[in-house]
Amino acid sequence: MLRKYSNSRSHSDNLKLGSLSAFSAGMINIGSLLLFFSFSSNVTGHYAILASEIVKGNVYQTLVVFSWIFLFFMGSFVANLTVIHLNNKNSYVAHSIPIVLEIICLVTVSTYGDNFYKETLFETEILLSILLFAMGLQNGLTASISNFSIKTTHLTGTTTDLGILFSMFTKKEFRNNKTLKQRAKLLSSITLFYLSGAIIAGFTYISLGFKMFYVVSIVLVFIIVYDLYKIRLKQYWHKKRLFKLNLVELKENIIPEKEKRVA
């Protein structure tokens, strides 16, 4: 999911990363709406709200919404900064750092909300800012490493693309196009997982409260560990193959040579 970059990514890589990150985005977005009465990833909506607050002349609200949009921007900025600067050294580490930062953000919100939150407006705004930064990180990372084919924190573009794709499928030549079919599968999966995450957040909100961000963190940890496990597994198979090759070489060349020498 995280090891490969841009065009070297397979459809399966994108499908797994897109689905899991969409699930976590759905949970975070609805979680923040239920806990703080504001979306954490609906930036288009925040732009509309920003405009309306400017028109109303509400300076405080204008500044708050502007800072939320700016933090989403910063999240995306930091994610891509990590990717482009560290990709040459270790792509897995470069792609994992934004997810690790996102986990830190979510655990911070969860821990603070569960233990110290006094429901003041200042706290609400800071916690929401952290969530917007986290969503910026996630969206920036997925878009950056997938060559802009995965965006998981909002579904405007995804729904538009799905509409276009399904209209294309009314023609037989496009219905049989493997790339288009894969794209439709990816976008449908992102939509479905986002919705599932949102519904689960809605159902578990009363019982979990702020702890729901721990659940999201576990999903994100799975994304990181899955690739780590794959890397380890690959290394193991590689070593095993080398060992087998060495054994064959030993049997075919070295042992007969020794036997010859002894004889």
Binding site: S38, Q61, W68, E119, L121, T124
Partner: peptide, 27 residues
Amino acid sequence: NQKLILKGEKTTKEISWSIKGRGNILE
């Protein structure tokens, strides 16, 4: 201290208040 006193003609009630969202929701 996030306390709200609701005063009526004959009754007085004390509840809690807080502001959510971007300052647009009264809870």
